[in-house]
Amino acid sequence: MKTTLAALKKGQKAIITDLNIDAVPLKLLEMGCLPGNTVELLQVAPMGDPIYINVNESHVAIRLETAREIDVEFIPNSL
């Protein structure tokens, strides 16, 4: 099932399939937020934004606005 990074639930893992290169900051790309890499949602801020993810063994907080620009495919039974 394809969706965006913003739709992940805490503890869920997915594989990045595509991203909007113009909307995703270069720093995220340098940290490994690239197609083919696995991403896991670690935590969500109390108001829902930002979200805290693990991608390429890096822990990163990103805004929901940015997460909506990253397409992912859920890894079955990753909760």
Rank of each mutant, 00 (worst) to 15 (best):
T17W: 04
M31A: 13
L19P: 00
N37W: 03
K27N: 08
T4G: 01
T17Y: 01
L19K: 00
L28F: 14
L34N: 12
E30I: 06
L8A: 10
M1T: 14
L8K: 03
M1K: 14
L8G: 01
D18I: 02
L28W: 10
G36K: 07
M1V: 15
L34K: 12
K9D: 14
E40H: 00
V39R: 04
N20P: 01
M31S: 14
K10Y: 00
A6I: 06
G36F: 10
M31F: 07
C33R: 00
L29Y: 01
E30S: 09
D18A: 13
T3N: 07
I21N: 02
I16A: 02
L34S: 06
G11H: 11
L5S: 05
I21A: 12
D18F: 11
E30V: 07
L41A: 03
A7F: 14
A6E: 12
G36Y: 13
G11A: 13
I15A: 03
T38R: 14
G32W: 02
L28Q: 03
E30R: 13
G32F: 04
M1I: 15
A14R: 03
K27L: 11
L8V: 07
N20M: 08
D22L: 09
L5N: 02
A7Q: 13
M1G: 15
K9Y: 09
K10R: 15
K2V: 13
P25E: 09
K2A: 07
K13I: 04
G32D: 09
L29W: 03
A14E: 01
P25Q: 07
V24F: 08
A14P: 05
K9A: 13
N20C: 12
D22Y: 06
A7P: 00
L19A: 01
I21Q: 09
K27F: 07
K13R: 15
A6Q: 08
G32N: 09
P25T: 06
G36C: 07
Q12L: 06
A6L: 08
K13G: 02
I15L: 11
G32I: 08
A6C: 08
L41I: 08
M1C: 11
I16G: 00
K27C: 08
P35M: 12
M31H: 07
K2F: 15
M31G: 04
A23M: 14
T17C: 07
V24R: 05
T17R: 11
N37M: 11
M1H: 14
L34C: 04
K13D: 05
A14K: 02
V24A: 03
A14N: 06
G32R: 02
M31V: 12
E40F: 00
V39N: 01
K13P: 03
G32A: 04
L5G: 05
P25V: 05
A23S: 12
D22A: 11
T17L: 12
L34G: 00
Q12N: 06
E40P: 02
A7M: 11
N37C: 11
K9M: 10
P25G: 06
N37E: 15
E30Q: 13
E40K: 15
L34A: 04
A14G: 05
L19Q: 03
A14W: 00
V24C: 01
E40L: 07
I16Y: 05
M1D: 15
D22H: 06
C33W: 08
K2C: 08
N37D: 03
A14Q: 01
T3R: 11
